[in-house]
């Protein structure tokens, strides 16, 4: 098998498949009647896709050395590896938050989501520190996580199908920014996002149709935290000069779903809401990538043999 195909399978498709199957089990009809279980499955599935890809790309010790000293491990402590630990914690947060929402009334459930958003944003601001961090930057990072979570929560029906677009755009930006490892991890999350959304749709068919998965609560918390911190990480380690505004916009792409669902209020059927929400995110994502591509093209004057094709970029030139 071609080495590059084997690599992509190992770090993108296998983690995505495992995550999709894991989430899919929670979306099966008998279990789906319990909304909190579907919510937990989807949310933890996305975090699991990132975590498995992270471990496949690096090593389980990359996560382990963030919290303990591992005997015989002399690999460097790298701050961006904190993302692996974040994904691991988000798997747990997904289950606790979903269970808590499942036991609460609708009003309390909304407050619980808000509470989790505040807590996770604070933790992300305090404990996830990339190089060059200052108090102001950490505050802004926490704010970005909070805003991202809120937008995913507000994106409503469009959120589930939007995940693969948002993480796909983040992956493309990472690849452009010279961060191949994070790009493949985003790829895994994107593929898992697509698989999980498809599983939610397919497994909901039948008579009577199953309730659509409400992408709130733990789903918003996990999607929002992961997207915002990936964007921040990509921003810090970017070596291609992609602006901070572009990375921030990528983390806030679910705004497209919010804008479009507001614009097309006549779309009352869930399928139509999902479609327009997805269209909004996809259009914003395409515009963002188009802007970056145009900016790259305008830079021009590159040295000959600069290895512009994907294959060269993947192989470090």
């Amino acid at each position: 098998m071609n080495e590059i195909v084997a690599y992509i399978l190992e770090v993108v498709f296998v983690p995505a498949l495992v995550a999709t199957v894991f989430a899919g089990v929670c979306l099966l009809r008998p279990l789906r009647r319990r909304a909190w279980l579907a919510e937990a499955g989807v949310a933890s599935g996305i975090a699991l896709a990132f975590l498995l890809s992270f471990i496949a790309e690096l090593d389980w010790r990359a996560v382990g050395r963030q919290i303990i000293a591992i005997e015989g491990d002399d690999a460097p402590f790298e701050r961006w590896h904190r993302l692996g630990l974040v994904a691991l914690l988000l798997v747990g947060v997904a289950w606790v938050a979903s269970l808590q929402r499942g036991r609460a009334s609708v009003a309390r459930g909304k407050l619980a989501t808000l509470g989790w958003a505040v807590v996770v944003s604070l933790l992300a601001g305090v404990f996830v520190r990339f190089p060059g961090s200052t108090v102001l930057i950490q505050c802004l990072q926490g704010l970005l996580v909070f805003a991202s979570i809120m937008l995913w929560a507000l994106a409503n029906q469009g959120a589930l199908w939007s995940a693969w677009v948002v993480f796909g755009v983040l992956g493309a930006l990472c690849a452009l920014g010279g961060f191949a490892s994070l790009a493949v991890m985003c790829g895994a999350v994107s593929v898992a996002g697509f698989g999980i959304a498809a599983a939610a749709a397919v497994l909901g068919r039948g008579a009577p149709p199953a309730e659509p998965v409400q992408p709130r609560g733990a789903i918003a918390v996990v999607f929002g935290t992961l997207a915002a911190l990936i964007a921040r990480c990509g921003m810090v380690y970017d070596t291609a000069g992609i602006s901070a505004a572009v990375w921030t916009a990528a983390a806030l792409l679910p705004a497209g779903a919010v804008l479009f669902s507001g614009r097309f209020r006549s779309a009352v059927r869930p399928a139509a809401k999902t479609f327009w929400g997805w269209i909004g995110v996809a259009l914003l994502g395409a515009a963002l990538l188009g802007f970056v591509a145009a900016s790259e093209a305008m830079k021009g004057g590159k040295s000959p043999g600069s290895g512009d094709d994907d294959y060269d970029a993947m192989y470090g030139g």
């Binding site: 790298e78 961006w80 060059g132 010279g178 961060f179 191949a180 070596t239 590159k302 470090g316």
Partner: peptide, 18 residues
Amino acid sequence: SEKLDGNLQGPNFFNQAE
């Protein structure tokens, strides 16, 4: 190669930021 220089400075290689 400007692009390769960027890749080498990135986290996959020298991780210049850290």
